[in-house]
Design a protein around this nucleic acid. Structure first.
Lengths: 345, 345
DNA sequence: ACTAACTGGTTAATCGATTAATCATACGCT
DNA sequence: AGCGTATGATTAATCGATTAACCAGTTAGT
């Protein structure tokens, strides 16, 4: 910057003003400075700027478990949204453990991030980090900034299956402690009409009892009349799909299968999976926007009050999910013998 | 830092020396300073340090396409390795396009990263970025820093299938321009003995001709005697698996199927996928180590020569892949009628 | 006893950008 | 002419850590 100033015989302050457009600089000087800057290949030093302004223009992305197959979508969406807002994204993975997560967060803070996007899980507690935090969880969770409307998503698949004439459902969750999964299952249940029956199984519990690779015992359920199996993730839907096919049960002719998240393999398996897609790009946009707003006005907030509140609020806290009807769901096999009214479980 | 200095009546230089262990400070003063630093909750300012030292302690991770299902593994491994070396990881996604990639890289440079880890693809060209670069591609690619030994991996699955008595193979690739996939297929071919036959199909070409969701026409191949189908990714292996099962072909009784990468769903589909696992953690470690070495000695290199060479060299350039034998591969169906010697295609 | 070397610490400059305070002109108005 | 007010640019302080240069005591060597 001082090189530009010297080259043009002006002060470095003028160069700063010219490039940032803040002070009062004559129009033609601005032009000359811009030109010279390009000519010299000037790139502002983030370090210098950060030191002076106290802002790094970097956000931290905290994930409970990077190996989550949904992560690519999340990371990509966040990176894009942040980048559009002029921010970089520093990632922190906690490999499932809560202790590592705390460490990961403090590493981010030490690196001077201006804000945090946190995808929480179970015991995630965000202590007193000194910067705004956007939480992406579920609309039903207190402190949630913005997230997909998992409940509505659940309701959408369930309604889809009901419309196809299904009356006997098997709902498959993985972790009974997950807010997201509970919302999805809750939404499903809410949309199942009076003359339907449903059972819910949680894979984690099941696998804990019978081992990782255990059969899910789907044949039994099918023999008991289940014609629709709705899982909270495509990962589980896939497992269901292959287990059914191995047992010679036709999907969707005999049983319909649905998942969640529209994972990368979902369109290409046979039959392609009916699932629920979340608009991660929009969620990321809202989360980042809320975060950036708080960061940018943060200065004043900190000055006149105690400290800015931790978790920020977005314009919209829930983003609609989209039902993707594909080949794995179809009309119920035998639309005879309706079950007696009343819900099981 | 000056607060610590004031509190103990020493100069800030002494505090810096004490905490960094560089200058000469008496042992008990070091203790007192450390204690006071903890007490005051001192966290060094990266901005200040970066400004002075010219190093940000942040690395950039450049990915051609974040939606690659292997990405979680990569990101996690890189994050862990970098974090252990005291570096943060800034991600940059180029969503497949080469132009976006160039932009992404320059954004990282502007942010002042000390080094770059690049997972290249096709037209990836790293221009004159002013920092060391580690390339993770294939051992056969010039400029490769470190990567999995895809060729060996291919050879391993192929040998496994040959040992099971298979003689007629279908090899499935996706993108004929991918170095990784060519290495894998090349390795496979190299390990197929003289009295075997094989055909290779590239999905991208196929899908371009017949559309995204087109059948892969596997039944034809099976009827022509193929008993083993080896794909370059679990994603394609899964597609193969479900297509076969839908057609009523038993895996592995009639046809064996293998994949690559040990993706998250591979162990849980039915039958679980035989695949090849890459030790991403080790690859990341080697790449980061090479990068960090270059960065840390970089100062001298830049001083006495022209500039440090772009891509760094690791201790080991290829990391062995591990064959994961699961349920989707088994003995060849009919070990009769060996084919005439000579390779098809 | 006088110098050399060492020990433990301080001073002050520096990295690059930002910004409040200041200054010098020129212009408009009565 | 004289005063107030824009306008355009400069000065200098500042953010926080690092580090070369320097300084005051102490110890060792001859």
């Amino acid at each position: 910057m001082s090189m530009i100033a010297d080259a043009l015989g002006v002060s470095s302050a003028t160069v700063s003003n010219a490039l940032s457009g803040k002070g009062r600089v004559s129009a033609d000087l601005v032009d000359k400075i811009r030109k010279k800057a390009d000519e010299l290949g000037y790139v502002p030093s983030n370090a210098g700027r950060a030191l002076r302004t106290g802002r790094s223009n970097v956000l931290g992305l905290v994930l409970p478990d990077i190996s989550n197959p949904l992560f690519p979508q999340i990371a990509q969406a966040m990176e894009t949204a942040a980048s559009n807002a002029g921010y970089g994204v520093l990632i922190a993975d906690s490999r499932g453990k809560v202790t590592t997560q705390t460490q990961a967060i403090s590493r981010l803070i030490e690196r001077g991030v201006d804000g945090l996007v946190v995808i929480p899980r179970r015991g995630t507690r965000i202590g007193d980090v000194g910067c705004p935090v956007a939480m992406v969880d579920t609309p039903s969770t207190p402190g949630n900034t913005v997230s997909a409307d998992h409940w509505e998503g659940g309701a959408k698949v369930a309604r889809h299956l009901v419309d196809l004439g299904h009356q006997n459902f098997l709902l498959i969750g993985h972790d009974p402690a997950s807010n997201v999964q509970n919302d999805r299952i809750g939404g499903m249940k809410s949309a199942l009409g009076r003359n339907t029956r449903h059972t819910t199984i949680w894979l984690e519990t099941l696998m804990h009892e019978r081992g990782e690779r255990a059969s899910l015992g789907l044949i039994d359920h099918v023999q008991n009349g289940v014609t629709a199996i709705a899982a909270v993730s495509d990962l589980h839907a896939l497992r269901v799909l292959t287990e059914l096919q191995t047992s010679g049960i036709k999907v969707p002719q005999q049983v319909s299968v649905t998942g969640f998240d529209d994972l990368i393999f979902s369109p290409v398996v046979t039959p392609s999976l009916t699932t629920v897609h979340m608009d991660m790009a929009r969620i990321a946009e809202l989360a980042i926007a809320a975060l950036v707003r708080e960061i940018e006005q943060g200065k004043s907030t900190v000055q006149n009050g105690k400290a800015a509140k931790q978790t920020v609020t977005a314009d919209t806290s829930k983003v609609s999910m989209e039902l993707m009807v594909r080949a794995s769901s179809g009309p119920a096999a035998s639309p005879d013998a309706p079950f007696p009214t009343g819900e099981t479980l």
